[in-house]
Amino acid sequence: MTEYKLVVVGAGGVGKSALTIQLIQNHFVDEYDPTIEDSYRKQVVIDGETCLLDILDTAGQEEYSAMRDQYMRTGEGFLCVFAINNTKSFEDIHHYREQIKRVKDSEDVPMVLVGNKCDLPSRTVDTKQAQDLARSYGIPFIETSAKTRQGVDDAFYTLVREIRKHKEKMSKDGKKKKKKSKTKCVIM
């Protein structure tokens, strides 16, 4: 069974824990209790493949930012979460993405942009803004509501699919490099 290491990042209060708990335990946590770091595991079937999701729910508070490099190193894919009623959390996505790329030393890291709290009427981040940002990053965008469960499975499952595509691409690139290195030079 394939294991996928997913990391949920975003500013404090955007609903990272609520999304994760909704996926794992099928219930909505409405009281806000700032996370330092929590880890969850769940076995699911995605596109006919049974897999184990190892999900790291991270601290959004700035005082825990020193811990970010460590979990970013171990993560295979990242859910970059903002709240649709919090423009600052949307603007912060850029910083999370840049930090992930720096730590992973790669421009090509599996990510999904997630606009959470889409059940709320007080939207300050337009869907088109988020779609445009995701398009500019070359990553999928999904709106979710941890409260109603809308888009929750889709967000995590899409990230797994992005990781699969990335692994497939990397193995193809690896095979191309191996083929090239088999060419021999004969000096007579």
Results as ranks from 00 to 15, higher is better:
36 I>H: 00
107 E>P: 12
111 M>I: 11
182 K>P: 07
148 T>N: 12
106 S>H: 07
109 V>W: 10
93 I>W: 08
19 L>Y: 15
109 V>C: 10
29 V>L: 07
136 S>Q: 14
96 Y>K: 01
26 N>G: 11
42 K>R: 09
133 L>T: 07
118 C>G: 10
8 V>K: 02
16 K>S: 15
23 L>H: 09
21 I>F: 15
29 V>W: 04
16 K>I: 15
35 T>D: 04
184 K>Q: 12
184 K>V: 02
21 I>T: 07
124 T>I: 08
129 Q>N: 04
14 V>G: 07
166 H>I: 10
38 D>H: 00
69 D>A: 07
93 I>L: 13
48 G>W: 03
7 V>R: 00
52 L>H: 03
151 G>M: 06
63 E>R: 01
22 Q>P: 01
181 S>P: 14
112 V>E: 00
172 K>A: 10
58 T>N: 04
116 N>P: 00
60 G>R: 15
125 V>W: 08
130 A>M: 11
3 E>T: 04
166 H>A: 10
124 T>D: 13
120 L>P: 15
97 R>Y: 13
77 G>T: 03
71 Y>L: 14
109 V>M: 07
152 V>K: 13
122 S>W: 07
41 R>L: 00
29 V>K: 01
26 N>I: 02
153 D>K: 08
33 D>V: 00
165 K>L: 12
29 V>D: 01
65 S>D: 10
180 K>G: 08
126 D>L: 07
111 M>E: 02
184 K>L: 04
158 T>C: 09
134 A>Y: 04
22 Q>V: 01
82 F>E: 11
79 L>R: 00
32 Y>Q: 01
29 V>F: 09
133 L>W: 07
25 Q>Y: 02
37 E>I: 02
56 L>N: 03
105 D>Y: 06
143 E>G: 13
7 V>M: 10
8 V>D: 03
116 N>Y: 00
15 G>W: 01
10 G>Q: 01
132 D>I: 08
51 C>S: 07
152 V>P: 13
187 I>G: 12
8 V>R: 01
32 Y>D: 00
175 K>M: 05
6 L>Q: 03
25 Q>W: 02
150 Q>E: 07
11 A>M: 12
48 G>R: 06
150 Q>H: 02
39 S>P: 01
179 K>R: 08
184 K>C: 09
132 D>K: 09
65 S>L: 02
158 T>E: 12
125 V>P: 09
8 V>N: 00
102 R>A: 13
50 T>H: 09
174 G>D: 10
59 A>Y: 04
156 F>Y: 11
40 Y>P: 00
97 R>V: 15
76 E>Q: 14
178 K>H: 09
51 C>L: 09
178 K>C: 06
81 V>T: 09
82 F>M: 12
83 A>E: 15
155 A>S: 11
169 K>Y: 15
23 L>G: 14
76 E>C: 15
127 T>D: 11
4 Y>M: 15
101 K>Q: 04
174 G>L: 06
161 R>A: 13
160 V>G: 03
22 Q>L: 02
131 Q>L: 06
68 R>S: 02
155 A>Q: 13
81 V>M: 12
4 Y>N: 08
125 V>Q: 11
27 H>F: 13
161 R>L: 05
22 Q>T: 12
151 G>I: 10
147 K>V: 03
5 K>A: 02
37 E>V: 03
152 V>T: 07
82 F>W: 08
109 V>Q: 03
101 K>G: 12
53 L>W: 03
77 G>A: 09
139 I>V: 07
132 D>W: 06
144 T>V: 15
135 R>A: 06
141 F>S: 10
164 R>V: 11
53 L>R: 00
112 V>C: 05
80 C>A: 04
177 K>V: 06
185 C>F: 13
170 M>D: 14
130 A>L: 10
158 T>S: 07
64 Y>W: 08
2 T>R: 11
53 L>T: 06
134 A>I: 07
24 I>R: 02
113 L>P: 04
42 K>F: 01
114 V>A: 03
44 V>Q: 05
125 V>M: 09
18 A>R: 01
185 C>K: 14
107 E>G: 10
128 K>N: 06
134 A>R: 11
16 K>G: 15
117 K>A: 13
178 K>G: 07
130 A>S: 06
53 L>I: 09
95 H>P: 02
143 E>D: 07
27 H>S: 09
134 A>E: 05
144 T>G: 04
176 K>W: 03
121 P>F: 12
137 Y>C: 07
48 G>T: 05
48 G>M: 04
88 K>F: 15
141 F>K: 01
75 G>C: 15
100 I>H: 01
15 G>M: 03
85 N>I: 13
107 E>W: 11
45 V>A: 10
181 S>E: 07
17 S>I: 00
70 Q>K: 04
31 E>R: 06
124 T>P: 10
136 S>Y: 11
50 T>F: 03
14 V>H: 06
51 C>R: 03
187 I>D: 09
119 D>E: 10
76 E>Y: 14
187 I>N: 11
79 L>N: 03
128 K>I: 07
131 Q>F: 07
186 V>H: 13
182 K>N: 08
71 Y>E: 14
15 G>K: 00
188 M>R: 07
156 F>R: 10
67 M>C: 03
177 K>M: 12
126 D>I: 07
18 A>H: 03
151 G>P: 14
152 V>W: 15
172 K>W: 15
180 K>M: 05
59 A>R: 01
119 D>W: 07
166 H>Y: 08
160 V>K: 06
13 G>Q: 08
133 L>H: 09
7 V>F: 00
76 E>W: 14
93 I>T: 12
97 R>I: 15
110 P>M: 03
121 P>A: 13
84 I>T: 14
160 V>C: 12
145 S>W: 05
149 R>D: 13
52 L>N: 03
166 H>L: 08
155 A>E: 06
31 E>C: 12
77 G>F: 01
51 C>Y: 12
79 L>P: 02
180 K>T: 12
28 F>G: 00
171 S>C: 11
17 S>K: 00
133 L>C: 04
150 Q>V: 08
116 N>V: 14
129 Q>T: 11
106 S>I: 09
75 G>P: 02
6 L>V: 06
55 I>R: 00
179 K>M: 05
122 S>L: 09
